[in-house]
Design a protein around this nucleic acid. Structure first.
Lengths: 235, 235
DNA sequence: ACGCTGGAGTGAACGGTGTAAGCAACGTGA
DNA sequence: TCACGTTGCTTACACCGTTCACTCCAGCGT
């Protein structure tokens, strides 16, 4: 790779960046259906077919956008993690709260990342989007592994776990080595519950009873922490 | 209301039904973006403007579709509930499993009901969609109230609960009277976790580790049952 | 039995969308 | 300087939601 990119290359990456930024702006301003090739081009002072020099299709644009949003969310989580001290319990709380905060502040983006998958948008293993999602998960998984190393929480023994689950975890453990099946099970369990707590609120599916689900979310954090043997501290 | 609808009225309701059925078929076949007025009309052998005799707009069509899907899901839950005996614990398990089963078998529909809300689609209180959603929730809430009446589970006292949460629950309790704040809190907690467990799998957000999350789901049911003092029985 | 009314459905049209093909202009390396 | 690859534009096509003017016919009152 050229250490000093040529003038054309600089212009090209700048335009590519501007396309994603404009798409992002349209997304937050008017929802996913507004992130349209023609609208982006209009906003940038060019025409839609010109964008095809940078994106292969509308779908490809959305895939790129999702990858970038994953990156931004991951960065926000890492900032929150590093803003508190090195204590793992505090870091897990901070990262979880940052996830909820980002999701509520960026509902449209959260819908793109964690809502029902749009048909035609698939993220095969190894794709940029898949990798970005993996980096997102690694923030949680890293803290989890650290917690397990420092201060193991109670888990089920291998022979207490549904053998089908063990089978599936085996393949994944190849990648995420180091923790026993029981700990991986607890990790997935925590992910499911954190996902649910954030997404149900952001998508408005506790709205029938609550307008602000923060107390419910904090309660969930407390219960999860208890399961992991962690102290709970209010925000 | 006329006891015997006129010929024209019968034709009208039949067409209205066919529109929704065609929309549904397109949804499951090709995703939400394929449920298009022109495609529905094409499928039915008529032209798009003709549909405007039956739906006010594309958005209105989606709202009607959502209401119908809520109805279908609710019927499936009630069938599952009534298929087991009158035991509340067994019924709660059956209904929860039926929710997951329906969601996995109808991912596109689940996305419409519980995914990120489409902009422009709002369900004001009292709307048909809102009522349909309420009837869906009533299946769970009814069983919960029955359980509370028969065999109360441990809940927090009123003064242990975040006062902001109490405030919000007060308005809702007006509708769902009978249970103390602590029990309502537990109900919402259970809803959040059930929602998360079903949606995270149906939307593919545990796919990084598992292809079949049933063992994880059953584990969650067991933990939830424990919280409610209920025996767990595998499916 | 007749005529009228109102609902069902059509065709054309407008502005929006994604996308393909061909063409003009311009930076870049020989 | 010159050829070339890249960039972006114009044009064009098919599809979308939606409106409007229009035809047609079932069903009603007389």
């Amino acid at each position: 790779m050229a250490a000093v990119p040529s003038r054309r290359e600089r212009a090209r990456t700048a335009t590519a960046q501007e396309i994603l930024a404009t798409a992002r702006a349209l997304l937050v301003a008017s929802g996913p259906s507004a992130v349209t090739l023609r609208a982006i081009a209009r906003e940038m002072g060019m025409t839609a077919p010109g964008l095809y020099r940078y994106v292969a299709s509308h779908e490809d644009l959305l895939v790129q956008l999702i990858a970038e949003l994953y990156g931004e969310l991951t960065a926000a989580l890492e900032r929150a993690r590093d803003a508190v001290g090195p204590d793992v319990a505090a870091r897990l709380l901070a990262v979880s709260r940052a996830f909820r905060t980002w999701g509520l502040a960026h509902r449209a983006e959260l819908g793109l990342l964690f809502g029902s998958p749009l048909p035609g948008i698939d993220t095969p293993p190894g794709s940029e989007t898949d990798e970005a999602g993996r980096r997102f998960g690694a923030v949680f998984l890293g803290l989890f592994a650290e917690l397990w190393a420092q201060q193991p929480f109670p888990v089920r023994a291998d022979d207490e776990i549904d053998p089908r689950l063990v089978d599936e975890l085996t393949a994944w453990r190849g990648v995420e080595g180091g923790m026993p099946y029981g700990a991986l099970e607890v990790f997935l369990h925590c992910w499911v519950r954190l996902y649910g707590a954030v997404v149900v609120e952001a998508f408005g599916h506790v709205g029938f009873a609550l307008t602000d689900a923060e107390p419910l979310f904090e309660r969930e954090l407390a219960v999860l922490g208890e399961m992991l043997g962690l102290p709970y501290a209010p925000p």
